[in-house]
Amino acid sequence: MIAGEDTAEYGFRCLMEKYQERLYRHIRRLVLEHEDANDVLQNCFIKAFRGIGGFKQQSQLFTWLYRIATNESITFLKKKRRRQAAALDEGNLRIAEQLRADPYFNGEEIQRHLQEALHRLPDKQRIVFNLRYFEELSYREMSKLLDTSVGALKASYHHAVKKIECYFHEMEIR
């Protein structure tokens, strides 16, 4: 439907409606702020629309969209970190404090701390943790999405879990 000239817009609207919430949550967990997640999600859909011709149906459409979203998020984060490092302003602001001021975050203190702990992890470990802990994917599904072996994913998840648990222990949050 997306490939057809007359039906492309309708087909793409259907695709967005189907996957937007799931992709938004995935992106939001990585970039944290709603405005950033909104920008990244829109860019992700625009890239998908323009690149749909290159989509090979060897993988599912969601897997393909998910990869675009992950790459866009990581690129966005790298740029943001560089800007923060050069500007010396928000960079030092702790995630927990940032979330306290965010009108689109209504979690409790413990959720803020969880995000703080998550943002201390390397990007890859954070993505693996999010997929397993929040999205409850099996290692096999994650392996397809991330193009990584099940063993490596289990190791990444284990390291991430230990680090987060350690953070809570250090903060004496029980």
Partner: peptide, 16 residues
């Protein structure tokens, strides 16, 4: 501790 936290099933992210 994380296992207990998962029980709450809340993340806190909302949208406009």
């Amino acid at each position: 501790f994380l296992a207990g936290l998962k029980e709450k099933d809340k993340e806190g992210f909302v949208t406009p």
